[in-house]
Structures are given as C-alpha cells and as structure tokens.
Design a protein around this nucleic acid. Structure first.
Lengths: 347, 347
DNA sequence: GTGAAAGCGCTAACAT
DNA sequence: ATGTTAGCGCTTTCAC
C-alpha cells in the first residue's frame, strides 16, 4: 500500500536532520539528545507516522508473524484455538496469518508454501484429515522453520506439540456414566487413522476395567467416516439388541448427533431411557447449551499454549541459534454434566 | 524469517550472470534467451527458490494482502464469509489477514491500525456491535485505503458494501408461514440499534399487509439484548396469551433458541402446535440439520462479493488513480423449509 | 550527539 | 540479450 504514508525521511527533511537520527530518536536511543527526541516524537505524532512493517521485516529478516494452518475455521473448536493463539501472539508483538487446509493434504502443502513465502517466523499446524505422509512437513522443518503442532499432531520426537488428554477425558466420561448407574455402555468409535480414536477407546476400556465391568465388543461400534448417518445407523443397531445399552459414549460430534437422532426417532428419552455422553468439538460447542453431557475440549487454552511454545522456540533460535528442546503439553478436558438426575432415577 | 532462504543472488552467482537477468528469466521476460531461461528455471527448481514476498512488497509498495475485520470468528456466519473471501482472494493472487474485533470498538480501532501498519492493500470490514462513531473509519478512508463493508456496514454513500436483503428474506419467511395456514404470527425483534432489526420487521409487516392479516403489536416482542433467556421469556409470555400465536418468527438465533426452549418446556410441539421460523447466522448454521425452518444467510457468497468489489477497487485505483464508484450488493436469502407437513395439518 | 553509507531482496529504467 | 544502478523504508555499523 503506497498512498499517503509518512516515512522517516519526511520527518528528517522537515526537521533538517538525518533519517538515522530520526530512527534512533523514535526508538529512544540513549545517544540522542532529549530535545531532538522531543521534536521528532512530536512531529511523528502530528504527521501520524507509522513505521512501515514491510521495510522493517525485510531489514531484520523477521516478520513478527506466526502462520497458522487449521483444518477448518467453521469448527467451533478450531475457532476458539485461533482466539487463544491471537491472545498470546498479540501480547508478544506478533501478528497471525490463518490458513485453512479444508481437510485436504494438497491445500495443506500449498498453505505451508504460502506461509513460507510470506516468511512467517514460525508455524502452528493442526494436520488435515488426509495427511498421512510427512515429506512436506519434514522439508519445511529442514529449512529451519520453527513449528508447533496442536490437536492433530505430527508424532515425531523432534517437534513440540500440544494435545488434549483424550485418554483421561474419555475415562472420566465413562466413569461418570458408571457412577450414574449405567452398566451397558456402548462406544461409538471414530476414524481409525486418528490417534484420538485409539486414546478415547483406551480411556473407555480403562474405566470399565477399573469398575469391573466386562468389555463387550458387540457394543463397540466403528464409525470410520465421521458422518451423522453413520452414528445414526450404528445406534439403530444398538437399540435393536436384545439387551440394549443403557448408555452411549460417542467419541465425536457427528456420531453423537446421529445417536441422538436415532434415539429420538425410536421414541426413547435421553437420559432416562438411555444416557449419552459426547466429545464436543465441532457442533456442540457452538450451542450455548449442549443437549447432552459432554467432554469439553480446551480450545482457547490449546491456542495459548501452542503460541507460547512457538514464540519461545523462535526467540531461543534467533538468540542462541541453538536447536530448541521439543516439548509436549497435555491439556485436561472438562466434563459438562447435564444428566445428573439420572443417578437417582437409576437407583 | 532468515534461515536457509535461497535468493536471486545465489542463482546469479552460481550461473555467473547478473541478478537482474535471473529476475527477468524467472518472469519469462521476452528479452531473455531461451537457454538462459532454462538454466535459471532449472537451478531455481533445484535450489527450491521461492521469491521473498517481503522484498517484493517493499519494492512495489503493494503487499497483495487484504485485511479483514470481523466481529467474531466463532460465529458460523462469519467463518463462512471468510471462506468466501479467501476463495476470491487466493485466485486473484491475494493473501488474507483476519482480525477479530470481539464486538469491541476499541479492538476495531487497533485492528484497523494494525492492518494499516501491515500495509494491506485494502480492508474488508464488518462493524462491531459497539461501533456507533466513525472517525476511525473516516480517517483511514482519508488516507486512501480502499474499504468494503459487509453485513454490518458503515452506511455512507462513498463506500461499497455488501448486505443481505433482510427485508425480502423476512417477508418470504412470513409469507411461508401464512401459506402454511398460520394467521397469528408473533415476531421476536432483535437489538434496536441494528439496521437488520428494522428491515426484518418491515418484511414481516409487508407480508402481513399483502395477506390482509392485521398487524398485532401485542405479539411483536422486543428482544434488545440478543440473549437466549430473553427469547425464552418473551415466548413464555406469548404462550400464556388467551389467543396464543400459531407461529413465531424469530429474527435472530438466540431468540429462536429461547423460543424453542420455552415451547419445549411448555410441552408443546414444533411445528404442530406452533410453527417457528428463525434467521440462521450463528448457531443453526453450525448444525447440519437446523431444528426448524430457517432463513439461510449467504455467508460464502457475501465473502466472495465483498472480496471482488475490494479487489476491483484496489486495481482500478492503482491503475487510473481515480476514485472508484461505490457499489452496493444486495444478496438474496434462501428459505430452508422443514415444516412443510404443517400445511396439510392445518387444513 | 549526529550523519553517511551500506544493505535486507527484488525490480525497472537505463545503459551497452 | 544482458549488466549496472538506483531505490522501496528502515536500521546499524562506522565515522566524526
């Protein structure tokens, strides 16, 4: 943008001093006399001078900008992550550029290229659903670009990541159902290639084991596609069973949505006839009052932590030029309970 | 970002030619011999050369970046607008920087400053809920920054804007209810300082007038705060009336959510006992299946149109240096019907 | 305490 | 067909 921008030269000319003096005066350099400083600052104020960040970035080979790649901005969870990132970035003097991969590996690759071209100081990445090869990431890491992964992480020991403690969250949710008197708890499983799917199943199993409830594989249903329809038909199958489950633990939103639809259409009531617990990341978070008990994912906190780690990496690297030690942050979930009446009902 | 970046100089040195020749070869300049071009392009490919956008921006006084200010990214509507903006921007060779005002005037002001400092080529703005003074906008416009407003617009004849045709949308929704056999249609009104509130009421009244249904002020309820509770208590009042409404037109999401809750708690059914139509921008859009008939807001299209207008402005200005003619785009809503069974029921 | 000069990476006159 | 030079706005040695 050219337009009417005031530069350091303009101030220098008007004051009859050199651009370097103006530059120093503006940064409160100790060498500059108080009078000069005063004159410069006043004129800068008057002319509405704002430094040209583009020139600054070129000069310092540092853009003070973080690049972010998320699968989709429309997901409530990811938009809260963004707010967390911005919160930390802004107060540390960094700007943020957000790109969406739209769950596509191809887009993820071009996003990384675009961010690299923009010379961002580092990248915060949550992998697309399609990403199962990592050359594009490795190549960019090899160029020395600091990266921190969040939520859908690249599982390599050399980079930092921030993830939700899915195992504990799933365990807590399952224990809650057990505490409410449920004993036949079905599990709706997510896409098998995602790490979270495994974690959530494990938490579920741990809870059952600790409570001496046998794990019944017949009521662990696979929902690999992540669609509502899938969750619905899985639930319909569950409801048709002779000894139907008294609770459903849906490990992702579409599965939970589908489960609720199926239950409603069967004329049953939640949670009286069958309790439902869901993980909330896309849909439910957007509703001020999720319709069922849910495991809340700390998106804002995740954004904050990821940004903190990245900024630390960037600043360590620019100082010492040493490789930063990768860190992993595990964030706790929070159970939002809406079926606490169930306990009494069951007894 | 410094790190291992390859520059034009590196290519020039390695090939024993000058940087300008390399630059020209890369842009397929007609003066350069085919052999040189080939050599340069091959080496560039091999070294993984990517142009430094920061240097380019400084050189051309053009960043090829659009700045966007939205009230909140978590709103489904605004996140679809962003996707629309990106769609058009990327294919025209522009990057996009998104900022959130969080519905705060102060944040809006600092966002504008930050975007100006980043020397974006133009700005796309949807005003915060707090914005009722416009000096910050005027000052930036005066500096020659192209601006296009969308959804929550600055109503001045000198700048371009893209808005939803709320009047027609509201009218269509109300006519739909009338067509379904409803005659006592309540209206839940939004915050009075927003233009959309007036538009939606007007559309509602037009529909009633055209259908020879008298406008009954007793069932036009004000919901100035935009909270769910408010919509709920307004609806509770409506349901208590002797001759209670057979339909509710909720002009915003929280009001619609509140209405639905109140109806459910009163043991009534939607749409059999009482039909509900809502405007969908925040919540419902996030659900793949909104629970009621709703007026869909074309967010993606709005983003596209706004970006198109802005880019045209930028490019006209940089060529002719003439002031662009402001344009206003009115976008049609779309009625998503889920209560079509009602008609028969009523007859 | 201040100025002159160089350079970040790139491009576009202006040479040759 | 290619090289030289200057400059976008800013900072930072190195002079004085």
């Amino acid at each position: 943008m050219k337009y009417n921008q005031v530069t350091i030269k303009d101030i220098a000319r008007e004051l009859g001093i050199s651009p370097s003096t103006v530059s120093r005066a503006l940064k409160d350099h100790p060498d500059i006399s108080p009078e000069t400083k005063k004159a410069v600052n006043e004129l800068a104020e008057k002319l509405n001078y704002t430094p040209n960040i583009v020139a600054l970035s070129l000069r310092q080979s540092k853009t003070n900008t973080l690049g972010v790649i998320i699968p989709e901005i429309v997901h409530f969870f990811f938009s809260t992550v963004i707010s967390g990132i911005e919160d930390v970035a802004y107060s540390a003097g960094y700007n943020v550029i957000i790109t969406q991969s739209n769950e596509s590996l191809l887009r993820e690759k071009t996003d990384i290229k675009a961010l690299f071209n923009s010379r961002v100081d580092g990248m915060l990445i949550s992998l697309s659903r399609e990403t199962s090869t990592f050359e594009h990431i490795d190549a960019t890491l090899a160029k020395g670009v600091p990266m921190v992964f969040f939520d859908r992480v690249y599982d390599t020991p050399t980079s930092s990541k921030v993830v939700v403690d899915d195992l504990s969250g799933a365990k807590e949710a399952t224990l809650h159902l057990i505490e409410q008197g449920c004993t036949r708890i079905a599990h709706l499983e997510g896409p098998p290639n995602l790490g979270i799917t495994k974690q959530r199943l494990e938490g579920y199993i741990e809870a059952l084991n600790e409570s001496n409830i046998p794990v019944n594989k017949d009521i662990i249903m696979s929902c690999p596609l992540g669609t509502i329809e899938e969750g619905k038909s899985a639930t319909e199958a569950l409801l048709k069973m002779d000894n139907r489950p008294d609770a459903i633990f849906a490990t992702n939103d579409p599965a939970a949505m589908g489960a609720m639809q199926a239950i409603k259409e069967a004329g049953l009531k939640i949670p009286q006839d069958i309790a439902v617990v869901g993980f909330s990341n896309w849909f439910f978070g957007a509703l001020l009052e999720p319709p069922l008990t849910s495991v809340d994912q700390p998106g804002f906190e995740m954004g904050q932590e990821a940004a903190k780690l990245l900024i630390r990496q960037i600043e360590v690297k620019s100082k010492d030029n040493s490789e930063p030690v990768p860190e992993t942050k595990l964030l706790k979930t929070r159970l939002i309970i809406r079926d606490s009446s169930l306990k009494k009902g069951k007894k």
